Amino acid sequence: MTTTEISIKMILDRWHGSIKNCDTILNSISDEQLLKEIAPGKNRGIYLLGHLIAVHDDMLRLMDMGEKLYPELYEPFLNAADKTTDNLPTAATLRNYWAKQNEALQQKFDSLKTEQWFERHTAVSAEDFVKEPHRNKLNIVITRTSHLQYHTGQLALLK
């Protein structure tokens, strides 16, 4: 393995480990617990789960891997604050979406060749990418892993 391949593997191993950690937390809490606030006046677990799905769904578009699987989640979980809409999917539906979306991302990740991880993501122009080559697909995985870890920690408070 080259140093580049090792680096990619390290980052993807942390991504997969973080998904697994979140799955462990989600499997340890009930749908009823997901309806509770993380702390008084804060987001509910169901909102955080929907938010994670919506953010990860956007990775498909950002990494030029296809269209979002669940575009209907954008409005309630990215554009609106928790408790501002009553029209949320059920916890069971979101758990199903979470699993399917993780499978879809895994398939897309597995299909990338080493050099493709260093291609620009769609939120950066070709001109800016020349000046900022770190704004690539692999960087999206890094930032989304940190985001996932943060919200997994919040979900753990529901236990």
Results as ranks from 00 to 15, higher is better:
residue 47 Y to R: 08
residue 132 E to K: 05
residue 132 E to I: 08
residue 45 G to F: 06
residue 24 T to R: 07
residue 24 T to V: 14
residue 11 I to A: 07
residue 64 D to E: 08
residue 104 A to D: 11
residue 4 T to Y: 02
residue 71 P to N: 09
residue 36 K to S: 09
residue 152 T to R: 02
residue 118 F to Q: 06
residue 157 L to I: 00
residue 66 G to A: 14
residue 105 L to K: 02
residue 9 K to R: 14
residue 40 P to Q: 09
residue 63 M to K: 05
residue 74 Y to R: 05
residue 141 V to P: 02
residue 61 R to Q: 01
residue 121 H to W: 03
residue 65 M to D: 03
residue 45 G to V: 00
residue 115 E to Q: 13
residue 65 M to R: 09
residue 40 P to R: 03
residue 109 F to L: 14
residue 120 R to K: 15
residue 148 L to V: 03
residue 137 K to Y: 00
residue 67 E to T: 03
residue 153 G to M: 08
residue 72 E to Q: 12
residue 44 R to H: 12
residue 91 A to P: 07
residue 37 E to L: 10
residue 114 T to N: 03
residue 30 S to E: 04
residue 101 Q to I: 08
residue 49 L to V: 11
residue 93 T to P: 03
residue 14 R to A: 07
residue 148 L to E: 11
residue 82 D to N: 13
residue 5 E to Y: 02
residue 159 K to F: 03
residue 16 H to V: 06
residue 78 L to P: 00
residue 95 R to H: 09
residue 149 Q to S: 07
residue 91 A to G: 07
residue 62 L to N: 04
residue 131 K to G: 10
residue 78 L to V: 13
residue 52 L to W: 11
residue 149 Q to P: 09
residue 57 D to T: 15
residue 127 E to N: 04
residue 57 D to E: 13
residue 158 L to T: 00
residue 55 V to G: 03
residue 114 T to S: 13
residue 118 F to I: 01
residue 113 K to F: 12
residue 122 T to Y: 10
residue 81 A to G: 12
residue 43 N to H: 04
residue 13 D to Q: 05
residue 84 T to R: 02
residue 101 Q to K: 15
residue 60 L to H: 12
residue 1 M to P: 00
residue 64 D to W: 00
residue 156 A to E: 07
residue 140 I to H: 00
residue 38 I to T: 07
residue 3 T to Q: 13
residue 61 R to M: 08
residue 43 N to D: 10
residue 96 N to V: 15
residue 29 I to D: 11
residue 121 H to T: 02
residue 71 P to W: 11
residue 56 H to S: 13
residue 55 V to S: 13
residue 46 I to R: 15
residue 110 D to F: 03
residue 90 T to K: 09
residue 73 L to A: 11
residue 122 T to W: 02
residue 16 H to E: 08
residue 157 L to G: 01
residue 36 K to G: 09
residue 4 T to M: 10
residue 70 Y to K: 13
residue 150 Y to G: 00
residue 66 G to C: 15
residue 124 V to K: 00
residue 19 I to W: 08
residue 93 T to S: 10
residue 143 T to I: 10
residue 103 E to H: 14
residue 16 H to L: 01
residue 49 L to H: 00
residue 54 A to L: 10
residue 73 L to F: 09
residue 143 T to Q: 13
residue 159 K to E: 09
residue 84 T to H: 09
residue 11 I to G: 01
residue 56 H to K: 12
residue 127 E to W: 01
residue 106 Q to L: 10
residue 39 A to N: 15
residue 4 T to W: 06
residue 110 D to M: 04
residue 42 K to P: 01
residue 113 K to S: 15
residue 155 L to G: 11
residue 71 P to I: 11
residue 54 A to Q: 05
residue 66 G to V: 13
residue 126 A to D: 15
residue 66 G to E: 15
residue 56 H to V: 01
residue 70 Y to A: 14
residue 47 Y to E: 11
residue 91 A to T: 11
residue 106 Q to G: 13
residue 138 L to V: 04
residue 2 T to D: 12
residue 60 L to T: 12
residue 23 D to K: 10
residue 146 S to Q: 08
residue 147 H to D: 14
residue 121 H to N: 07
residue 148 L to F: 04
residue 122 T to H: 00
residue 45 G to A: 09
residue 153 G to D: 11
residue 141 V to H: 04
residue 133 P to W: 05
residue 43 N to E: 01
residue 92 A to V: 06
residue 21 N to I: 06
residue 84 T to S: 12
residue 29 I to Y: 10
residue 48 L to T: 01
residue 85 T to H: 06
